[in-house]
Write a protein that binds this DNA or RNA. Structure first.
Lengths: 340, 340
DNA sequence: TCTTGGCACTCGGAAACATGGAGTGCCAGC
DNA sequence: GCTGGCACTCCATGTTTCCGAGTGCCAAGA
């Protein structure tokens, strides 16, 4: 089948171009890959592939490079996710095991991902909206100032200081604390808010204004959109590998990395853990990043993702390797969140 | 006085070079600055300045650029910190006012600083060692797993999960919680540790092992060196302004930004708030960053700094402006921490 | 003693030009 | 349908030329 060989040629071109960063010619191809045919034959195949829009020539008398469409074909049909080596698996495990708290887990993940892929890594914090309340604490700082501590199932901690309308004694506070916890603990964020609302009617009238105040602060803390946007970036030094084109690739990338909203859009909405998304070049939402690809995945202990993570790199990247690394790290975070 | 004019020439060279990024020649100087003398005279002055090591020629038949020593002289003697415009002051105030919690304050500060200076901004979290305990919470996850939440005066939150030697009931836990808080709240970190140690003898023997375990976790969390290293970076997109020399300037910079330890060393130990440090080029601790300068300041509500912040940019930077911005942001953080 | 115009000199950078080689497309023969 | 051969293209690289900004120095003037 020549059809088959043509695809082998495409695969070879992608692989060579990724590793050498240079347009690959027919002669070099047959030398590096045992295709069993002559350069002339490969040239014919190349002509067909070019007609199909899978590869292109930067200019006449240069080798071929894959187009975005070519990479897409490669990712979808010509390769499968590279399983990680035992050593790599071990590295991932030990690297993430030592983490103390959520911040630590996220931070280590980002580093690990950047190290494994040699690309820029992005990890989103677990979203508030999809987690549940683990504990709420009310601490009086002074008689009229109260600190509210909100602890979520994912390990995230939010705190707020509120000014109370008037003084509150320890006893009442203890009562409130108990009630609030009884109402909210275990509930998902959305439900917790309504549960807290219902609480107002259950307390003595003279305490209602306190509850209202506290409830408002809690609801505010829970629905904190800003924090839903929290992402951590690592491996920016790998931008140096982007190679040429400072203005066309690195500058817009640096700008994107500053904007969390942009990054979140890049990662995309992965609703399910363990399904890897690859977005190649122009497929992404930003024109300035047309020369970059994103490999992303959701993570989370259950069926539903509580956050996303991924890597961003030049379209000319090692897709199988990246996908494998992203998957591995996503899985590890998921299990760790499950334990915590 | 020709001595005076010579320094005017130096100042003019620094200013021109900073704004044009190009070696400045005698003719251009007299045109842009009203020095009242001819190019030939300026050339003579330049020769003297060069002999003194304050300026240099990239090559014969090129204009002059300031040396590190020249910048140092400029910063120390030829300029004073530019006061910020009213509009800028207002921007800073409104920008930082909306912050809810510590994370927010830090994040906003970093952005603001980057925006004001058009450089890379670095803000260190308040160090643990210099803050005091505001509240400790013990939350039982299961009968034998306990989450410890440590909240500090600066607003920082640390959390740990510990496995208890055996089960503990809610009542005992409440008692422990009260005791632990009574012992540690308000104490500075160092003292809190000893206070917790003393606590062990005061509880019933059957609970001692719990207290020991909890105490150990707390002490560990308090003395967490790793978290003392926490810094946030922003404005990396401004690296694009670094201009030429990707390898000589941007790459090492990106690498440095990955390593929090390096960043902290760059910021240096500012023990007092409101004293601004400028480190120019080779004066810094890293050879790879010999073409970059750091403008830093401590911050903190009291006499002693609880953290540092600053900016990093090419030696060819607007020192007066940067110093002014760093000072302004440091002051605002200080006052905000004071209120919180 | 300092300043200034004049002048010869230097040297980097841009432009113009040459050249070698990798790669292509196409064709005729197997 | 594959292959070797061949003419052709064109980029990358190296070489040469040339221009001009800038310098240092000197002799004359204030």
């Amino acid at each position: 089948m020549q059809e088959e060989r043509r695809l082998a040629v495409l695969r070879a071109i992608v692989e060579d171009y990724v590793s050498t960063r240079e347009p690959v010619g027919s002669k070099a191809l047959v030398e590096r890959h045992r295709l069993g045919v002559s350069p002339a034959t490969v040239r014919n195949d190349m002509a067909v592939l070019e007609e199909e829009g899978l590869i292109a020539q930067p200019h006449t008398s240069a080798g071929r490079i894959p187009t975005d469409k070519g990479y897409r074909f490669f990712v979808d049909r010509l390769t499968q996710i590279k399983p990680m080596s035992a050593a790599e698996r071990r590295a991932v495990a030990t690297f993430l095991e030592g983490a103390h708290d959520l911040d630590d887990v996220i931070q280590r993940s980002v580093r690990l991902l950047a190290q494994l892929t040699h690309q820029v890594a992005i990890v989103q914090y677990p979203t508030l909206s999809r987690s549940s309340v683990r504990h709420i604490d009310l601490v009086s700082l002074t008689a009229r100032r109260l600190m509210i501590v909100l602890i979520l199932s994912t390990g995230r901690v939010e705190q707020r200081v509120v000014e109370l309308p008037d003084e509150i004694d320890e006893e009442t506070l203890a009562d409130l604390r108990a009630r609030v916890n009884r109402a909210a603990v275990g509930e998902r964020i959305v439900d917790a808010a309504t549960a807290l609302g219902a609480l107002i009617d259950q307390v003595q009238p003279e305490h209602q204004k306190h509850v209202t105040r506290i409830g408002a602060a809690l609801v505010e803390a829970m629905s904190n959109e800003r924090h839903d946007e929290r992402v951590v970036v690592g491996g920016t030094a790998n931008l140096a590998r982007f190679g040429d084109g400072f203005d066309t690739a690195i500058k817009p990338m640096l700008e994107a990395l500053e904007e969390h909203v942009v990054l979140l859009k890049l990662l995309g909405e992965s609703t399910k853990p363990d399904s890897i998304t690859v977005r190649i070049g122009h497929e992404g939402p930003y024109q300035e990043l047309a020369t970059t690809s994103v490999v992303a995945s959701g993570y989370g202990p259950g069926e539903e993702a509580v956050g996303s993570l991924g890597i961003v790199g030049p379209t000319r990247m090692d897709y199988p390797g990246s996908m494998s690394a992203v998957r591995a790290v996503a899985r590890y975070i998921s299990t760790i969140l499950d334990q915590a």
